[in-house]
Design a protein around this nucleic acid. Structure first.
Lengths: 143, 143
DNA sequence: CTTATAACGGATATAGTTGTCCGTTATAAA
DNA sequence: TTTATAACGGACAACTATATCCGTTATAAG
């Protein structure tokens, strides 16, 4: 469904979001341990989130990664997915046709669009804040 | 969403199904032209569909590929997807956790399962016969 | 039986993704 | 100003998916 980069990115940003609400700044080492991901690769992943202005990085001693708290309810899962995988998940044809739309549909087009739109709605309506709140009321895992 | 192999496989089998209802046997050359896919690679794809007993191949002159007509309403899109991509699309975690289920869920698990189940239901309920019938009542494209 | 045809299958090439390594840059603390 | 720390960034390695090439096998027709 999503690329590995995107999967690590989702797990990482949710962990950072959670720690942000606890006023903790976290480093690469800690993130990769807590989400069980390869450290060097996770570094690239976090850089992409930083360059897309989704998270904030602080260099040097006592540095790390944070998310500005007021942004937790404006950053959605869809935002993160777009950073890594673009919008292909929302637009690309199920059977790989370059040009497939309601005017020139593949045989699966209309059934596919229905599911795709629901996925899109779910990802766009789910914010980091909602997920962090969920994690405070029940047990969820990131590794 | 699906692998390239799977995408070619879906387009190919729908084309073969359509031609089967017109009593036509089709060859590799024709299939790859009609679905706009690389010929040699499509050969591998069709071999997988043959070895999984989804389509039938006939070697030698006047050979080609067919689908036994009585099977058109028992072969689903899901069957084809499983041949190429297994059942990962139905079972794997959205954020890549090896062990993610309702007892040890990732933060997206329950929202994800909802969409996944709808996708599964759609793919499992869509038969080749339904798609071929659709193609007789409106214009659909395979390339 | 011979020939032409078309699927089959093994080997190899290419591309993209995932993953590692290591030196550089920024910066907080002493 | 020096030192230690942690993110950054470029190069490269490994792996997987995609794609091609070409000889082999089966078989229909003459």
């Amino acid at each position: 469904m999503f690329s590995k980069s995107c999967e690590y990115g989702l797990r990482a940003i949710i962990y950072i979001a959670q720690q942000t609400t606890l006023k903790n700044k976290v480093g690469l080492q800690e993130v990769s341990e807590e989400i069980n991901s390869p450290k060097a690769f996770t570094s690239k992943v976090l850089s992409r989130l930083t360059k897309s202005n989704t998270i904030t990085s602080i260099k040097g001693p006592y540095g790390g990664f944070i998310i500005e708290e007021h942004r937790l309810d404006s950053i959605t899962i869809s935002d993160v997915v777009r950073v890594f995988d673009g919008d292909s998940i929302y637009t690309s044809c199920g059977m790989g046709l370059k040009k497939c739309n309601e005017n020139a549909p593949c045989p699966l087009h209309f059934k596919f669009v229905k599911i795709r739109d629901e996925l899109k709605a779910m990802l766009e309506s789910t914010t980091l804040k909602m997920l962090v709140d969920d994690m405070n009321t029940a047990l969820f895992f990131l590794k």
